[in-house]
């Protein structure tokens, strides 16, 4: 019974919830059981945002993650808050353009991706989140990179159709990034 618990954390506005939604949908399309739980309320209105995504071969029990297998940290406070909760042998994805501290733990795998800078350079400023997600997918063959365009198709509303290509571009940039 394989279960992957993914915690995504950062500032409101960084697309934390959207990237979680993307991963949950990807899991759904690969026929896994999934849950997606956002933080909500005042903290969403200009503070920190986080999102719990569980992708599992068996039905999801509690949707609340206390010990993530994977942490995506999009700002320094989030990394500091959650770094010690990651399970031993887990993964931590760090947006290294916004976070200048390193993961000191030796029992986890850390990936440093200057996603915000990469997004800025490519003219897709708001899509740093999807660059990291692309890199994560590359490391998680069970979720498979194939079919990401279908997920983007499902999640980006018709009114924002122009964003579809840009999301796919960001995912590919993350996939191709060499850590």
């Amino acid at each position: 019974m394989k279960t992957t618990q993914i915690l995504i954390a950062g500032f409101g506005g960084q697309g934390i919830l959207f990237s979680g939604k993307f991963l949950a949908y990807k899991g759904l399309m690969e026929d896994y059981q999934v849950s997606w739980l956002p933080s909500y309320g005042p903290e969403m209105r200009g503070g920190t945002a986080n999102c719990n995504v569980i992708i599992s071969e068996s039905p999801v029990g509690s949707p609340i993650i206390t010990t993530p297998d994977v942490l995506i940290a999009m700002n320094t406070p989030s990394l500091q808050k959650y770094v010690d909760t990651v399970v031993s042998g887990g993964q931590i994805y760090v947006d290294s353009s916004l976070i200048d501290v390193k993961v000191e733990r030796k029992d986890v795998e850390a990936f440093y991706i200057p996603a915000t800078q990469m997004a800025k350079d490519a003219g897709i400023t708001t899509l740093a989140n999807m660059i990291i997600v692309g890199h994560l997918l590359e490391n998680h063959p069970e979720l498979s990179f194939d079919g990401t365009a279908d997920v983007v198709e499902k999640l980006v509303p018709p009114k924002k159709a122009a964003l579809k290509e840009l999301n796919i571009k960001a995912l590919n940039m993350g996939k191709d990034y060499k850590n």
Binding site: K21, V34, P38, V60
Partner: peptide, 10 residues
């Protein structure tokens, strides 16, 4: 409750 209300599942 707030959790079941806010969470997404298939």
């Amino acid at each position: 409750d707030g959790t079941i209300g806010q969470m997404m599942e298939p």
